[in-house]
Design a binder for these strands. Structure first.
Lengths: 241, 241
DNA sequence: ATGAAGACATAGGACGTCCAACCTCTCGTT
DNA sequence: AACGAGAGGTTGGACGTCCTATGTCTTCAT
């Protein structure tokens, strides 16, 4: 379940993250120049530059033209945690350490709204997974996933599953998954979820319903999520022209 | 307001956006291969690849190894109704009739948070517009726009302005506006906005902060919005590959 | 007919090179 | 002492080249 392929670019990225961690670099500390690191690692400056650009986009470093490269936000996470889900990335971007916890999971008959979105026959079964996502051990997202049984995902233990659902789906279906379509609204926290998010009933939360489609517009997973909006913000980039 | 970081990469990006628009390409339509476009534009395949990668990150296209490059989300809003703003579309989609009302407008010194996002000098002036968006005469969105004065928008009467701000900006700056970057969170409705949205204080609302950029990543407008979440849902399409 | 092998087109990845733009520091002229 | 020119280091941008990985389509032997 390696989402990170072992390309040189990723090696370089990993090296830089290690470098910052091991030398205990703090915010605004300067990193070695592109050229020197590239020489040390035996890669071209292009490759290193690409790694730096990526790290900058991820908010780890800041590059300043004509001056040098500096630590922006020391890396909170090492590689493997990065594999869970897109939401881990969001949490990471905000500066927390993400983790998952499975509350329950079972095969159930699809509820009407789910069945509707997934275009299932009546009485069709779905794998139901109830999880929470934690940021620095604090619960911030409550997740319910519904995956049609007919897809036939193979997982040794759903209870212990911490992999990337999207990756697993893509691999099992052997087709690229194309998009998540999400609807977002604000909502008052209902009582039954309150205990999981450890927030008072009625607190404003982001409620998201998200559907993953194949290229053929077949819905393969439907998820309901509740975000603790005090900690997590959603980020959209939308093209307007 | 110098708007010309006219790098080749940006030229290529702009060209591809135009290409998709002018040929009216839709989702899943195939784009010419990297090599052929690069040859047509007289740039190296590297440069073109970089543009493609960027466009993919922005959700406009999808690249598939060994197959080709495809349109993910056409970069323009095909709108006739969309006279005023993307939000009119959202309201329309939900089944209401959108309209606007200007509450107040003036030139003010940019508040710190706004000045920060727009990268303005201290004490720089901005055009401040306070509006509400109505769905079937019912207020559903509260909007505050901040536009740098130096852009020099020409409007006969801001009070009566109901045009499309984005269009006006694009025309005045004579450059395509590229993307909106938005941050969304849930929030309890504060008292000062309560009267405009006609909702009780403390009601859960969607709070959105939205920035419009040029192709060169210059921020040209910053907006704060509050959505009545009982009526409006936001809709995101995010590429996950 | 069928299926395997191979040709071809496409994106993925990396390298080495060159020059531009930007910043800091030093050193010589005034 | 003040200032400006210039050297040297740093990131920014682009090019051309080479090879690899992945799909698709054709061709040919069975």
């Amino acid at each position: 379940m390696a989402i990170t392929t072992d390309t040189r670019l990723n090696q370089v990225k990993a090296h830089m993250l290690n470098y910052i961690s091991q030398n205990k670099l703090k915010r605004n500390d300067q990193l070695p120049s592109e050229a020197s690191i590239a020489k040390d690692l035996g890669v071209s400056r292009n490759t290193l530059r690409e790694a730096y650009v990526t790290l900058e986009n991820e908010g780890v470093i800041v590059r300043r033209h004509g001056i040098g490269t500096f630590v922006a936000q020391p890396p909170y996470i090492q590689d493997s945690l990065n594999e869970f889900s897109p939401f881990a990335q969001i949490i990471q971007d905000v500066g927390y350490t993400p983790s998952f916890k499975t509350l329950s999971t079972e095969i159930v008959e699809a509820p009407p709204d789910v069945s509707d979105v997934l275009k299932l026959k009546a009485n069709a079964k779905v794998r139901y997974i109830q999880r929470i996502v934690l940021a620095d051990q604090k619960p911030v997202i409550y997740v319910e996933d519904f995956i049609p049984s007919e897809i036939g995902l193979q997982v040794t233990s759903w209870e212990a599953f911490e992999g990337n659902l999207v990756e697993l789906l893509a691999k099992t279906l052997n087709t690229p998954l194309h998009q998540i379509q999400s609807y977002i609204r604000a909502q008052s926290l209902p009582a039954d979820i309150s205990e999981f998010l450890k927030l008072p009933v009625g607190a404003p939360i982001l409620s998201v319903r998200s559907t993953i489609y194949t290229l053929d517009n077949q819905a393969v997973t439907f998820s309901k999520l509740c975000f603790n909006s005090e900690i997590i913000e959603l980020n959209i980039v939308r093209m307007i022209r």
